[in-house]
Design a binder for these strands. Sequence first.
DNA 1: GCATTTCGTCTCGCTCAGCGATACGCGCCG
DNA 2: CGGCGCGTATCGCTGAGCGAGACGAAATGC
Lengths: 259, 259
Amino acid sequence: MTQAPRPEAAGLDTVLGKAVTILRAFRPDDRAVPLAELVRRTGLHKATVHRLAAALVANRLLDRVDGGYRPSGGLFELGMLASPERSLLEVAVPFLQDLYERTHETVHLGVREGHDIVYVAKIGGHRQVRAPSRTGGRMPLHCTAIGKALLAHTDDALRQEVLTGPLERRTPHTLVAPGALRRQLREITETGVAFEREESTVGIQCVAAPVLGGDNAAVAAISVAGPTGRFRPERYVTQVRAAAAGLGSMLNRRGPRDR
Amino acid sequence: MTQAPRPEAAGLDTVLGKAVTILRAFRPDDRAVPLAELVRRTGLHKATVHRLAAALVANRLLDRVDGGYRPSGGLFELGMLASPERSLLEVAVPFLQDLYERTHETVHLGVREGHDIVYVAKIGGHRQVRAPSRTGGRMPLHCTAIGKALLAHTDDALRQEVLTGPLERRTPHTLVAPGALRRQLREITETGVAFEREESTVGIQCVAAPVLGGDNAAVAAISVAGPTGRFRPERYVTQVRAAAAGLGSMLNRRGPRDR
DNA sequence: GCATTTCGTCTCGCTCAGCGATACGCGCCG
DNA sequence: CGGCGCGTATCGCTGAGCGAGACGAAATGC
C-alpha cells in the first residue's frame, strides 16, 4: 500500500504499457493524430510509436486515416465490455430518460474513478447547454455537483484525502477552501442533494443526487445541468432525488455485486 | 456451448495481439472471468494469460475481482475516445431523444462494421421491450432493420458480398433467400425505410431509416423497436425518417469528414 | 478418509520479438 | 538551394516475453 504519487504511472518499459500509453495519448476531440504528435505526447521513440501504431491498427484498436491515426470502432466495442459501467448504464437509462423528459435539460450520470468523476452517460436535447462534459470524460470531484454528491457519500478516508489535497480552482466560484467544502458536504449528506453554481464551468449550474448502494455508499450520481440564466437548480431537487433513489433501489434489488 | 473457432485471426504471436485477444475474450454479460476460463477461451498458455492479465490490470484495462478478472472503467474511458462513434453519438443524442419522446419505444443508433452492425446507442424507458441488442453489441446486417437500411444504402460490392455469403437464419422469419432480400433492399432504397418483423428476434419488430452522408452512402441508421403485439412499425415511419434526415443534415453541415 | 482434479501462482533457462540509432525519400519552408 | 519535419525502412543487440513445469490450496469424487 505505498502511496502512489502518480496513480498514472503505468510501465513504459513493457510493450503493453507503451501501447496503452499511445492509446491514452489521444484526446477526446482530435480527429486524427499524426505520428510525430504521438511521439511528442508519449515521449516514446519514433520508431517505437511507428511500429506499435501499426500493430494497434492490425488489432483494430486504431484506424489509419489521412492525417495520422485515430481510435477505431474496435476500441469502442471493447470499452463497452466494461461491466460495471455497462450494467449500470443499462439499468440507468430509463431513469435518465424520465428525468430528461420531465426537465428537458442536460442529464448526466457519473461514477467515481480516483479523485475524478467519469461521465457514463450524458443526454440532452437540441437546446442543450454548451458544457465541457462528455461521455467517458473526466472532471474533478470537488467542483461538480455529481462529484460533491459522490464525495459526501463515500468513506471518510477518501473524503479526507481529497479535502487535504490541492483543490484546483477552475472558475472564480470554485470552492477551494477545505472548510467551506467540508461544510457543504455535510449539508449534502443531510439533504441528499448537491448543487453546483458555476464551480467547474462559468455559465453552468447543476443539481445532483447520489445513487446509494446497499452499504449506503454512493455508487454513482445523477445530475441535471443548465445555463445560469434561466436555469433554477432548486426546481429540480425532487425529480433528481427521485431518479437517483429509483435507480438505487433498482440496482440493489438486482444484486449488490458491483464495485 | 463452446464458441465457434475465431474467424478474427489477429496475430497471436505478438504480445499486443495476445493482450487484445484476452480482452476480446470477455463477453458482454460475464461479471468476472477466472483465469482458467480465459485460458480456455483464448487458447493461450496458462502462464501467458496469467502474466498478461496482471499486466492489463497494471495498465487499468482489467480489474482483479473475486471470481477472476473483468474489463475495467479504464477500458470504458479508452473506448469513448473512438472519435467516429463518439462524435456521431454526441450529435445524434438530441435526435434520438426527440424520437424517443415521440414514440416511447426503444430507440437504436447503429453503424456498420464489417458484415455486422454495432449499436452505438440504445435508449428506452422502463417499459422497454426485452431485446438482445446492447450498446457496443453486434448483430448481422441482413436480419435487422438497421442492418438492412445500411445495406440498402451502401456500395454494390459490399451488398453483393453479403447477399452471396451465407445468410444466417436467426428465427423462422429471417430472410435467407438472397432474391427476396435483394428485392426488399431495392424497396428500402426507394422508400427510405426498412422494416424488420421478427427476423432477428422472435417477438420484436423494428422500423429503421438510414442516415445519409454527403455521398449518399449511409453512415449510420436509426431504428425504433417494439414488441410484436401492440407495436405497429408503420406508425413510426415518418418520425424515424425525420430523425434520420435531421441527423444526416446536421452531420453534413458540421463536416463530412468521417469514415 | 484419501485420491484426484482443477485452479492460481511462481520459477527458470532459451530465444526471438521488440528495441532504437541511423538512414532515406519526400514535401515544405525561407 | 539547403534546412527541416515528416513518415518509413533497415539492422544488429539484447532482454522481455515465452512456455514447460513445479507447487500448494481448494474443490470434487469415491
